[in-house]
Write a protein that binds this DNA or RNA. Structure first.
Lengths: 138, 138
DNA sequence: TCAATAACCTACCAAAATAGTATGCTATAA
DNA sequence: TTATAGCATACTATTTTGGTAGGTTATTGA
């Protein structure tokens, strides 16, 4: 039941982009140095964020990434799912194809659904802005 | 963010013990056949449940396992944790030793804590009896 | 008391996932 | 036109997951 490092890094990258200099493009190297993450590994992560439309990029000198929206318009769920896929505790809940043969008479399914709902409820109600506001309190 | 097969099997085993014949000891082979799980794999799982005191055993002919308590006295959390360990989404929340160096100024920690709380709240309020009752409705 | 049964214990193993590297190509701005 | 920085693909080492295998110990019924 763990969030991968990719998911954790993704959230930190989004906070970084939102707080460091939201107006200008910031390079991977820049973020990687500040966040102490391998830049090649970060490249993979931010590429997923880019493909999901959560950030936009320009190449070349002075290139880099910036947010496409205001921090209040990103939920934690949007960010984590773009990296981790579904946050379901069992793959039966992911999509129709991954269902196990006994899904129809699975006594535990009801438990997994409740966990799924609870997790979704948390990640879909906390925004990037909430994280930033919360971190400033300390 | 997935529950392992061990965790899922453990829950099914507990339901099996509670519903098949709660008075008598039931052998691993018996459970494994009914639940279509490898008996050697099941042995590992049920051994953890035994060490955690969730079931008790006797050896020899007519030996096997039975519950130590009434189904209403087990929460899903007790069962899953005995197999999976903590259900925390990040290891920082597990125990003091696993903390990452930047835990003290981690902006995301507040998110992980909320997820942790939400998951705990679900698994600690659903009992084994609830699962059994729910499965009978269908 | 002895043979069958079934838990107990330890070790091993293959496949998949995770976390991260390496290399080369393409677009852009100074 | 060159330095910069994103883009794409492939590779690799480590850890976790999901099992197997084999021998030992305890119990019970005949």
């Amino acid at each position: 039941m763990k969030i991968s490092t990719k998911g954790r890094y993704a959230l930190r990258v989004m906070v970084d982009l939102a707080t460091t200099d939201p107006e200008n493009y910031i390079s991977i190297k820049n973020i990687a140095n500040r966040q102490k993450i391998s830049d090649k590994y970060l490249e993979q992560i931010i590429s997923s964020l880019n493909k999901a439309g959560l950030v936009k990029s320009t190449r070349g000198a002075l290139g880099g990434y910036k947010l496409t929206k205001a921090p209040k318009d990103y939920t934690v769920g949007m960010i984590l799912r773009s990296i981790e896929g579904s946050l379901a505790p069992v793959s039966c809940l992911d999509d129709e194809e991954n269902q196990c043969p006994r899904c129809s008479d699975c006594v535990s399914l009801y438990v997994w659904e409740k966990i799924y709902e609870a997790v979704n409820n948390v990640v879909d109600t906390i925004t990037l802005q909430d994280i930033i506001d919360n971190s400033k309190l300390r």
